[in-house]
Amino acid sequence: MKSRFYAVNFGVPLACALLIFLAFDMTTIDVTFSNLLFDPVTRSFPLDHIHFFEQLTHKWARIIPNWTAEAAAIGAILSFVWPLVNPQKRPGLGGFLERNKVAPVLQFAAAHRRDFLFVVVAFALCTGMIHFLKAHTSVYCPIETTLYGGKMAHVDWFSNFQLFHEAGDGRCWPGGHASGGFTMMALYFVARRYRWRFSSAVLSFALVLGFIYGTTRVLQGWHYMSHTFWAGVVVWLTCLLTALAFYGRARLEQPVLKKHERVRAVSQAELVN
Rank of each mutant, 00 (worst) to 15 (best):
M1D: 10
R4E: 13
F5T: 05
N9K: 00
G11I: 05
V12Q: 05
L14M: 11
L19T: 10
T28G: 08
F33T: 06
S34Q: 09
S34T: 12
N35M: 04
L37M: 14
F38E: 10
V41G: 08
V41K: 08
R43W: 02
R43S: 14
R43Y: 01
R43E: 13
F45I: 08
P46C: 11
I50T: 06
F52H: 00
F53H: 01
F53G: 02
E54R: 03
Q55A: 12
H58P: 00
R62E: 15
I64A: 15
E70T: 14
A76K: 00
V81K: 01
V81M: 03
P91C: 12
L93N: 05
L97T: 11
L97K: 05
V105H: 07
L106Y: 12
H112R: 10
H112A: 15
R114M: 13
F116M: 13
L117N: 09
V119F: 07
V120D: 03
V120M: 03
V120K: 01
V121N: 01
A124F: 12
C126Y: 00
T127V: 11
T127D: 12
G128K: 03
H131G: 02
F132N: 07
A135M: 03
T137P: 02
S138N: 04
V139M: 04
V139I: 08
V139Q: 06
C141G: 11
P142L: 06
I143S: 12
E144D: 15
T146P: 00
Y148F: 15
M152T: 13
D156Y: 12
D156W: 05
D156V: 00
F158Q: 11
N160H: 14
N160F: 01
F161K: 00
F161S: 01
Q162N: 12
F164W: 13
E166A: 15
D169F: 09
D169R: 11
G170T: 09
G170S: 12
R171F: 15
P174K: 02
H177R: 05
G180T: 09
G181E: 06
T183M: 15
T183Q: 13
A186V: 11
V190A: 09
R192M: 10
Y194I: 14
F198I: 00
S199P: 02
S200W: 08
S200N: 12
V202L: 06
S204W: 09
S204T: 10
F205Y: 14
L207S: 11
V208I: 14
L209H: 07
G210H: 08
I212H: 01
G214R: 05
G214W: 04
T215P: 01
R217C: 07
R217A: 14
Q220L: 02
Y224L: 08
H227K: 01
W230S: 02
A231R: 06
V233E: 07
V233A: 04
V234G: 09
T238E: 04
L240T: 06
L241I: 15
L244F: 08
G248P: 07
A250R: 05
L252E: 11
L252S: 12
E253T: 07
L257H: 13
R262M: 14
S267W: 04
A269C: 11
A269W: 10
A269R: 01
L271M: 13
N273A: 15
